[in-house]
Simulated assay, not measured.
Amino acid sequence: MGKKLVMAQKRGETRALCLGVAMVVCAVIAYYILGTTLLPLYQKSVWTQESMCYLIEAKIWDQEELEGRKVAQYPCLWVNVSTVGRWAVLYHTEDTWDQNQQCSYIPGSLDNYQLARASAEKVRGRFQEHRAFRCFAAPRENETRVLYRRLYGPQTLLFSLFWPTFLLTGGLLVIAMVKFNQSLSILAAQK
C-alpha cells in the first residue's frame, strides 16, 4: 500500500511540475509576442501630451468633393478642434489617420450605409454636447493632428502584460510548491 501511495505522489508531482513548466513557457512566449508586436507600437507613439480640446466644428461629409479628392463611400466625420494654442484635426485613434486622412471618425459598420450614417451622427452629437474634452497631442509644434484615444498607451501595455505576468507567477509558484513538498518528503523520510 505504501509503495502505491509513493508512486501516486510521484506521478502527481511530475504532473504538477509539468504544469508549472508549461505555464512558465507559455508566459515567456506571450512576453516575446507582446515584446515584438505591442511594445514597438507603444514606443513609436508620439501622442504623449494630454491636453484639453475644444470643439470648433464637426461635420459629416457624404461623397462630396474635398480638396479635389472624392470622399470615400461611407459617411466621414470631420472634427476641427483648438488645443495647445493652435487649431488641429481630431482623429479617433492612431489607425484612423492611416485608414483615411480626411476622416476624424470612421464608423465601424461600413456595409450598411444607414447604420454607418447613424453611428457618425451619434458621435457628432456627443462632440457637440461635450464641447471640451481630453485629447492627446504630439509635443511637436508643427503637428496639426490630435487623437481622441490612444490605442497604444500605458494602460493598454499594462493590461496586455497582466495575464502573462499572472501566468508566470502561477507557474513559478506551482514549481516552488512541488519542490518544497519534495524537500519536506525527503526530510520526513530521513527521520
Rank of each mutant, 00 (worst) to 15 (best):
L55A: 04
T36R: 14
V46C: 08
Y42L: 03
L38P: 09
I29A: 14
A22M: 11
S45R: 12
Y42K: 10
Y42T: 05
V46D: 09
L39T: 08
Y42D: 05
I56P: 01
V28C: 13
T37C: 03
S51I: 00
A27P: 03
A22F: 07
L55C: 04
T37A: 04
Y42G: 04
P40M: 12
P40A: 11
Y54Q: 13
V24W: 06
C26V: 13
A30R: 11
A30N: 11
A27V: 10
E57F: 04
V25M: 10
V21C: 04
A58H: 02
Q43K: 15
C26Q: 10
V25H: 01
T48W: 03
W47E: 00
Y32V: 09
A30P: 01
A30H: 09
T37H: 09
K44D: 15
C26F: 15
S51T: 15
E57K: 15
Y31E: 06
L41I: 09
Y31D: 06
Y31N: 08
V28P: 01
T36C: 08
T37S: 13
I29C: 11
I33W: 12
Y54M: 11
I33H: 09
T37V: 06
Q43Y: 11
Y31S: 05
Q49F: 05
S45D: 15
T48L: 15
V25K: 03
Q43I: 15
L34Y: 07
E50H: 12
A27D: 05
L41E: 15
Y31P: 01
T48Y: 02
Q43M: 13
S51G: 07
L38I: 14
L39R: 04
C53M: 04
A27I: 08
A58N: 01
C53L: 03
I56G: 09
A58V: 02
L39H: 01
